[in-house]
């Protein structure tokens, strides 16, 4: 029942984008988000959308996965759209129903905001689809490393993230097993009112917590046994290194930024 839940929806692959350094992808995503905010018109959005879709197509991941991340924010998009549609002041009235009026400016602003939100989500989706969670934390650690001079615990945070990510599938698996075992003993997790359901979770949660603590203790011991003592002086098996394709990716993102700024300057709709 819990099977099929993937974490961070990473899709393994060997495309150009998959092979980019995770730091490049992180920075490019931040840049992409910035570019979405820079764009003042729909032409810019169209260009960004084309860029993201082309990137996604080149990875071999089906486009539907790009839009899957939209589901949870659909409500926010609709809300923003409605808010802007009805409350944006403007002069060109398109439709009037009593006190409620829809203006051309309102319609433009509403669509603009909705498209901007959608683009924000879709472009960051590209990062999580093509980067494994572990590569992502490695990239984050490396990017935050300079902040260690101001005592920012970059290594510790990255280690906690990778341990947490590492254990999510394990704990899901365990939850699935315990659930099956209790169901085999006639437990019912699916029917009943809220209180009954909450009570039905006890036979699942108690063994799950006991197991999580046991695993945490075992892991701490295993790390200790292998002389783990924090990030200082620790070398890595997978060294992150910028390659030619990373420069290429940076150029592509910069070109997109230049194009969007140019579209803004010429006031293209």
């Amino acid at each position: 029942m819990l099977k099929g839940v993937t974490i961070g929806q990473f899709f393994p692959g060997d495309s150009l984008i998959h092979r980019l350094d995770p730091r490049t992808k992180l920075l490019a995503t931040i840049a992409l988000i910035a570019i979405v905010f820079v764009s003042q018109g729909f032409a810019g959005f169209l260009l960004i959308a084309a860029f993201v879709l082309a990137c996604c197509a080149s990875t071999g991941i089906h486009l539907k996965f790009l839009f899957r991340g939209l589901k949870p924010i659909l409500f926010i998009v609709l809300f923003t759209f409605a808010l802007n549609l009805f409350f944006q002041s403007g002069t060109t009235v398109l439709l009037q129903l009593g006190p409620v009026k829809i203006t051309a400016e309102g319609l433009r602003m509403a669509s603009f905001m909705a498209v901007r939100l959608i683009l924000l989500v879709v472009s960051s989706q590209l990062l999580t689809l093509t980067t494994s969670p572990i590569a992502l934390t490695d990239g984050l650690e490396s990017l935050f490393r300079p902040l260690e001079v101001v005592k920012f615990p970059a290594h510790e945070i990255a280690m906690m993230m990778s341990i947490a990510l590492r254990f999510i599938p394990t704990l899901m698996d365990e939850a699935d097993k315990i659930m099956k075992a209790q169901k085999a003993r006639g437990a019912d997790f699916e029917t009943g009112n809220l209180l009954q359901r909450a009570k039905a979770m006890v036979p699942l949660l108690v063994p799950l917590f006991v197991g999580a603590f046991r695993r945490a203790e075992e892991l701490a011991l295993a790390m200790d046994a292998r002389c783990y003592r924090g990030g200082a002086g620790r070398t890595r098996m997978h060294q992150l290194r910028f390659k030619g394709i990373d420069a290429l990716a940076a150029l592509a993102v910069l070109a997109l930024l230049a194009a969007v700024i140019a579209l803004n300057a010429f006031h293209v709709w």
């Binding site: 097993k177 075992a181 169901k183 006639g186 006890v202 108690v206 197991g211």
Partner: peptide, 17 residues
């Protein structure tokens, strides 16, 4: 069915609660 078929999973001690 569950009354008729008793299922003991691997490491069943981890499901005590």
């Amino acid at each position: 069915v569950r009354r008729a078929v008793g299922l003991v999973f691997q490491y069943p001690e981890y499901q005590l609660f």
